[in-house]
Simulated assay, not measured.
Amino acid sequence: MKLAPIIDPGARKPGPKPAQVDLHRVFFLGTALWLVAAIVCLILVLCGINAVKSLIVCVAGMIIGVLLLTWEHFNRWYYRRLGK
């Protein structure tokens, strides 16, 4: 193990360049999956199966997904410029 990079930051290798990603697709896909799970849980609740807690978790996942999509919309410029 070499101690030079720990002691002297100038001896470190340069880090990799950040990859340019599209968080909109990721957040939208995750929110869509929570929506599908919520529909399944709603059908189970309507059939008489006790899945109310699961439905609440799915709704919370959709709310978080919408909040993340909103954040991504307003901060897209900041994280997209890091990958250039």
Rank of each mutant, 00 (worst) to 15 (best):
R25F: 07
F28E: 15
G30Q: 00
I43K: 10
L42G: 15
V59T: 05
I6C: 03
D8L: 00
A37C: 03
H24R: 15
L68E: 10
F28D: 11
L35Y: 08
G48L: 04
G61T: 08
P5F: 04
R80A: 11
I49N: 08
I7L: 15
F27G: 00
N50L: 08
R12D: 00
L67W: 08
K2D: 15
V40K: 11
T70I: 14
F28T: 13
F28H: 10
P9H: 03
F74I: 09
T70L: 15
D8A: 00
G30T: 02
M1P: 01
A4S: 14
L23H: 00
K17V: 09
P5I: 00
D8I: 02
A11Q: 08
L33D: 04
K13E: 15
A19Q: 13
P14T: 11
A32Q: 09
R12M: 00
Y78H: 14
H24Y: 12
A32H: 06
L69V: 05
G48S: 01
N75V: 03
R81Q: 14
W77C: 06
A11P: 04
Y78Q: 14
A38H: 01
H73R: 15
W77V: 13
A60T: 07
G83R: 02
F28Q: 14
I7S: 05
Y78E: 12
C41G: 07
V36Y: 04
V66Q: 07
T70N: 13
L3M: 11
M1D: 10
D22K: 08
G30N: 06
V45C: 11
P14E: 13
N75Q: 09
P9F: 01
V21I: 12
C47D: 14
K13D: 12
P5M: 07
S54Q: 15
I43N: 07
